[in-house]
């Protein structure tokens, strides 16, 4: 356990504590707003997971074992986000195509985590809520994959799959492939955000699109190591922070998708 990880977890915990405090104030002021309530509970989950991790390190002198309360809390966050999304009413080909893409993407990530960590149960528990959230969010979005943005984005997940597979197959090139994977993840994340936003300004990104970005950041961080892991975790925290700010400030209009 290095100092960088402890510092990061401490700062992350402080950030979540501040966000929780702000969101609880907003929820008390507007108690019948489902997405605000769900976001508050989800951020509380994140805070509790961080607090447990730090408390375990301080009290027991080591990090929690696999499948501890931390994992339960983080998985709970994704489940709460999924619970807050409405059921899709009408299905079009575009929605189905994006949902299929995101479903395959999260399942392949789950396979990658299992191959890497050898913990199939833990990774199954992580993959299911991420898969559900990604698919439902995609079903609520009207994104054209057969556009210039789509054509630019689509090769990148394939390249990522190839690079990640190569890093597992040839461990002697692990370091250089790791850097390549991190760059590919970052490029694909930016192109994905560009694809999701369409022609509207970034601040008008609909709620399911924010959810997809969060899932993407989580997948990127879980398949990265060293500095890349922290970069994607910071991006995830930033995405959750932006999302919470939008839900807290603009409220109900954004819930109407």
């Amino acid at each position: 356990m290095n100092a960088m990880t402890i510092l990061y977890e401490g700062l992350h915990c402080l950030f979540c504590a501040w966000l929780t405090y702000w969101l609880i104030g907003k929820t008390i002021a507007a108690p019948h707003h489902p997405m605000l309530y769900a976001t508050t509970v989800a951020v509380v989950c994140l805070l509790l997971g961080d607090a447990y991790w730090l408390a375990h390190l301080i009290i027991r002198g080591n990090v929690p074992e696999i499948l501890s309360a931390c994992d339960v809390a983080y998985v709970g966050m994704w489940l709460i986000f999924h619970a807050a999304l409405p059921r899709p009413q009408k299905l079009s080909g575009r929605q189905a195509a994006l949902a299929a893409l995101m479903g395959v993407f999260t399942v392949l990530n789950g396979v990658g985590w299992t191959v890497w960590t050898q913990h199939w149960l833990l990774n199954l528990i992580w993959t299911i809520p991420l898969f559900l959230l990604a698919v439902r969010s995609a079903l609520l979005l009207d994104v054209r994959l057969n556009s210039l943005r789509g054509y630019l984005f689509l090769p990148l997940p394939g390249l990522l799959l190839a690079a990640e597979t190569a890093s597992f197959l040839w461990p002697e090139f692990w370091d250089s492939l790791n850097v390549l994977c991190a760059i590919l993840w970052l490029c694909s994340l930016m192109l994905f955000a560009w694809l999701l936003k369409g022609k509207a300004p970034f601040r008008q990104l609909p709620i399911p699109a924010w959810m997809l970005l969060m899932v993407y950041c989580e997948c990127a961080s879980l398949l990265s190591s060293d500095w890349a892991y922290f970069v994607f975790q910071v991006l995830l925290a930033g995405t959750i922070g932006c999302f919470a700010r939008i839900v807290g400030k603009e409220g109900e209009p954004l819930y109407a998708l």
Binding site: C70, H82, A83
Partner: peptide
């Protein structure tokens, strides 16, 4: 969504 909502709440109390 009830099932994921209940499981999410369960996760909070477990933590």
């Amino acid at each position: 969504e009830t099932v994921s909502g209940y499981l999410g709440v369960y996760a909070v109390t477990v933590t």
